[in-house]
Design a protein around this nucleic acid. Structure first.
Lengths: 151, 151
DNA sequence: CCAGTAGGTTCTGTTTTAGAACTCACTTTT
DNA sequence: AAAAGTGAGTTCTAAAACAGAACCTACTGG
C-alpha cells in the first residue's frame, strides 16, 4: 500500500495522517496557528526547502485547513490563514505537547506557550471523557474492534 | 534543514514528529495499542512494505515506545508491546480521532472504538485545561511566543 | 525430504526530499 | 532611468526514502 492511498480509510488516525502526516505539514500548520503566515517567514523559521513548503501549503489549502488571503496589492501577495478546521486541531496539538514534555524531555525551552485567554496562565491540558468527566488514560479505556474491514 | 535533525528542537510538536512523524509510524503504533503486535500481522493489516515496517519497529523500540518480547521458543519469535510512553499517547490519538470525525468525515465505519473501561460506552474525548476545568478550544486559548530561539 | 510459517533482509525502480539557483512582478534607491 | 531589493514562488540535480517483489533463515510438522 502507498502512503498516498490513505485518504479513504475508515480509521480516523489514518485519515488524519493522509492530511497532516507528510513531512513538515504539522509544523507548518503550527506556525500559521502561531501567527506566522507568509511564505518567506515560514521558510526562514523552519528552514525547509521552498519547494516542499510550496507543496505543503497547497495541500493544506486544498484540504481546507489553510486559506490564502491577499494582504497587499501591487504585487498581490498572500498569507495563509488557518481555517476553523485548523484551529480545532489546537487541542490535539496541546495534548501532543503535554505528551512530549513528559516523554521526550529537553532542556531547551518551548518556543511557544498556550495560555488561557482570560487568566493568561499556561494551560494544563488533559483529555477527558465528556460522558463521565473522568480523565482518559491508558487505564481508563478499552479498545474494541468494530467488526469491519481494513484500517 | 533536514527532517532527521528535528530531535533536539525546543518545540514539543517538532520532537513528537521526530519520533512519530515518519510515514506509517503512528499507524503501526496504533495497531500495537489495539493488540496487533506481530510482524506479519501488522504487515498484513497495513499492507506496507516489510522493509519499512522493520525500520519503524526498530525506531519505535529505540525511542522507548515499543518493547520486543519473545512469545515463543524454537524458533524464538517476538512481539512488539507498547510501553507506558506509547499507552500515554492514547489520549492524543483519541483527540485526533475526534477531530477527524468532525473535519474529515467518511461513510466507512471506524475499525476500532475506544470504550470506557467501566461503562463500556464509547468515549467522547474533549481536551480541557486542568487548571480551570474548562474545555480548551481555539477560542479559549492564547498563544504566546516564549522569547527564545528556533522552532 | 518436502511444505509451511514467522520474521526478517536484499534488490530494483520510482518518489520524495534537500539545497541551491533562478524567475517574476513589482517597489525603492541611486 | 538603471540598479538593487523584496516576497513568493519554480526549476534543477543529487541524495535519501519508499514500494513491491524476491530471497533468506530457523525452525515445525507431515
Amino acid at each position: 500500500m502507498k502512503w498516498t492511498d490513505l485518504t479513504n480509510e475508515g480509521c480516523s488516525v489514518a485519515r488524519t495522517m493522509s492530511v497532516l502526516g507528510d513531512r513538515w505539514t504539522l509544523l507548518i500548520l503550527r506556525d500559521t496557528l502561531f501567527g506566522i503566515r507568509r511564505f518567506d517567514d515560514i521558510q526562514k523559521r523552519l528552514k525547509i526547502t521552498r519547494h516542499v513548503l510550496s507543496d505543503r501549503l497547497k495541500r493544506l489549502e486544498t484540504h481546507g485547513l489553510l486559506e490564502r488571503k491577499p494582504y497587499q496589492e501591487r504585487p498581490t501577495r498572500y498569507e495563509y490563514h488557518p481555517t476553523q478546521a485548523a484551529r480545532d486541531f489546537v487541542p490535539v496539538m496541546q495534548a501532543m505537547t503535554a505528551w512530549a514534555q513528559t516523554h521526550l524531555p529537553t532542556e531547551k525551552s518551548e518556543p511557544y506557550r498556550f495560555l488561557d485567554r482570560e487568566t493568561r496562565h499556561p494551560t494544563n491540558p488533559k483529555v477527558i471523557d465528556a460522558n463521565t468527566g473522568a480523565e482518559i488514560t491508558s487505564k481508563s479505556i478499552w479498545v474494541e474492534a468494530n467488526r469491519s474491514s481494513s484500517n
